[in-house]
Every structure is written in structure tokens, then in C-alpha cells.
Amino acid sequence: MDGIAPYDPTTQYTSEPAIKEIGPEGHDIPLWKPVNMSRRAFLRGVVCSGTVIAGSAFLFSTATKARADERAVERMIRLTVNGRTHTVDVAPNETLAHTIRYRLGLTGTKIGCNHTECGACTVMAEGTTIYSCSTLTHRVRDKEITTVEGIAAPDGTLHPVQQAFIEELAPQCGFCTPGQVVSAVALLQKNPKPTVDEARLAMSGNLCRCGAYDHYLRGVMKAAERV
């Protein structure tokens, strides 16, 4: 009986690791402590430090041939996103969603379908909404791009649309929300007092798999009262 009973976590639990790890010189290795860093900050750090490698590998790993191809030459362009001009290398076959997410680290813009079928990737190019997943970055390099990160005021005050979406419980899983926010803001910039039908039309390019359409629509109408 001694020592062979099954391990009982309720009585035998200790906060120490069951086996003490010993360092190469026989010293105790300090216990691992979680770093206080949000997942998002962690991701952004990785994205920024690994821009060139990660970005290019992602683009070309599955591409036709593994060899360096003269067609894939990246060109350095200036891209203005949310009022900041970035200098960034962009491949000819690179989409805007790719550039803003993986090169600039602005991961607020989501890629849902990557085929112009959902609207999660909606951004504004000079005030008009476009699907960034299906727009070549080179095509819009002269345009002012606004992503969901550029919607709130610089001091963090939410845009009326964002505030109204929260109040109306519009986001369920939230994956479509960045796109919905951008579409709604673009509508109100053009037409601050839309009718419900106008709002519905303007939001009709944003799919919500959670089906929270009415909440989003109410949010748009509520925001329209405040802008």
C-alpha cells in the first residue's frame, strides 16, 4: 500500500511543481511566471519583430514555386493608414488586408472569407468602404486608408457608432464588428441622418454570422441621433 495509491489532487496538491527542475549547474531554475502581457500586445510584438520573415513567408510559402521569383519583387511604397504614413514593402499580389494586418500589425481589421463575401475586412479608402481582403495594396497606395483602429478619438473616446453598438449589445462574437463599425461610420460621414432603409442598405455588405443585424441597425440609428 505504501506509496502506490493513485495520486489524489485534492489532498496531495502542492503549488510547487511535482518534480523540481534542476539547472545545468545544479541550481534551482526559477519558477516560470506568466508575463503580464495581453495576447494582443504579444501578437503585435511578434508581428512587428518578424515583419519581413513572417510576412513574406506567409505570402510565398504556398505560392507556385519555392524559388525566388522576379515577379514577386516587393516594392517599397508609402501607405497612409489612420493619418500615419508608413513606408512598407508590398508584393504585387498582396492584398490591403494582408498589408495592414501582417505588415503594419493593425489586427483590428479581420479576414473572414477572403473572398468579398462577408465584410469583416471592411476599411475606408478616402471615405468609401471597400473590402480590403480583395483589393491589391498597390491599387490604393495613394488613398487615405482608415481602419477600425482609426475610428475612436486619439484620447480613446469612442465614436458614437462604437458607443451605440455597445449600448445596443450589437457584437455577439464580435468578429464582424470592426467591419460593421467602419461601414456605419462611413455612412454617417456621408449621410448623418439616414433613414432606416438607407442604413440597412449601407450595412448590407457586412455579414454577421451571429445574426445580430437588428442590434447593429439600432446602433446605427442611435448613433445617427448623436453625431
Binding site: T64, R71, P92, N93, N114, L136
Partner: peptide
């Protein structure tokens, strides 16, 4: 994710 083939633009 669907990445496009390489092309000259």
C-alpha cells in the same frame, strides 16, 4: 487562406 499566385503587376 487563399493566397494568390505570384504575378507581375
Amino acid at each position: 487562406m487563399d493566397v494568390m499566385h505570384q504575378f507581375e503587376l
